[in-house]
Every structure is written in C-alpha cells, then in structure tokens.
C-alpha cells in the first residue's frame, strides 16, 4: 500500500482514538469526584438563621447555609441580601478561617453588631452568637446541632 495513504489512515484512526482517550480521562476525573464526594459529607460549614427582621428580605425564620465566605448587604450581589434601608450596600463579611468564624464590618454607615456590641474591624464569632445588620438579627448555628 502507498505509504502516504497508510500514514493518513494512521493519523485518522489516531484522531478517533484520541477522542476516546479524552473521554477516558474525563471518566477518571468523574470517578475520582464521586469517590471524594463519598468521603466528605456535603454539608455547609454552618448556618445563619434570621431570628428577627423588620423587613421582607430576609424574613424572620429564614435559614442560610454558609460557605467559607458570605457577604451581607443591600446590594443584590451579596451572598445574603439584607433589603433594609439601614443596611449598607456592602455591609459585612462573615468568614470561616481555620477553625473559627469571623465577622468583619465593611465600613457600614449604621454599623454591624455582635451580641449587641458594635464590631470594629474584625471580630470572632462563636456558634449561637447573634449578629445584627441593619434591622435584621441573625444567629449563627452549627449544622445538624
């Protein structure tokens, strides 16, 4: 057989084979994901429950599962939107670092309160503590606890 044609054949078949190599690679990633998903329970790090609210959003009783970083404020781009004229657009950040929770006021007009006292810069938060942004009060809760 003509060597050129034979080579083209090889290239063609190689191309088809590579499509399957890709699928095989994907399959490996998917399997690994499945395994790691089985290892770590899919739960939030904690949750924020609205204990008192004088506005519609968030309404009282709402529960927010928390990722490592949650922003609070009036802007719709916040993780937790506090639709209250007393809240600033970017009001506060609640974050989990290492083994503890921290609340940071982002220079809000009316301030952020932890258990009734204003937060100046950064404050550590424990489960069960109460946070206040605008006229909305949250409680940090342990998941499943």
């Amino acid at each position: 057989m003509d060597p050129t044609i034979a080579t083209i054949w090889v290239v063609r078949v190689l191309f088809l084979a590579l499509l399957y190599v890709f699928l095989f690679g994907v399959a490996r990633v998917l399997l690994r994901d499945l395994r790691s998903a089985a290892r770590e329970p899919v739960t939030a790090l904690g949750r924020l429950r609205v204990v008192a609210s004088e506005v519609d959003e968030p309404s009282s009783g709402t529960v927010f599962p928390l990722d490592a970083v949650a922003t609070l404020g009036r802007d719709v781009n916040n993780t937790i939107v506090v639709d209250d004229p007393f809240a600033s657009t970017e009001h506060a950040v609640l974050s989990f670092r290492g083994r503890a929770w921290y609340l940071e006021d982002l220079g809000s007009t009316n301030g952020t309160f932890l258990n009734g006292s204003p937060v100046d810069g950064l404050a550590a938060v424990a489960f069960g503590d109460e946070l206040q942004v605008g006229r909305v009060r949250f409680r940090l809760e342990r998941v499943g606890g």
Binding site: P58, G61, T62, V63, F64, P65, T79, I80, V81
Partner: peptide
Amino acid sequence: MSGGGRGG
C-alpha cells in the same frame, strides 16, 4: 446561599 427559601 439563600437556601431553604421560606423555610416552609
């Protein structure tokens, strides 16, 4: 993010 919705 805002899970549970209305917690209904």
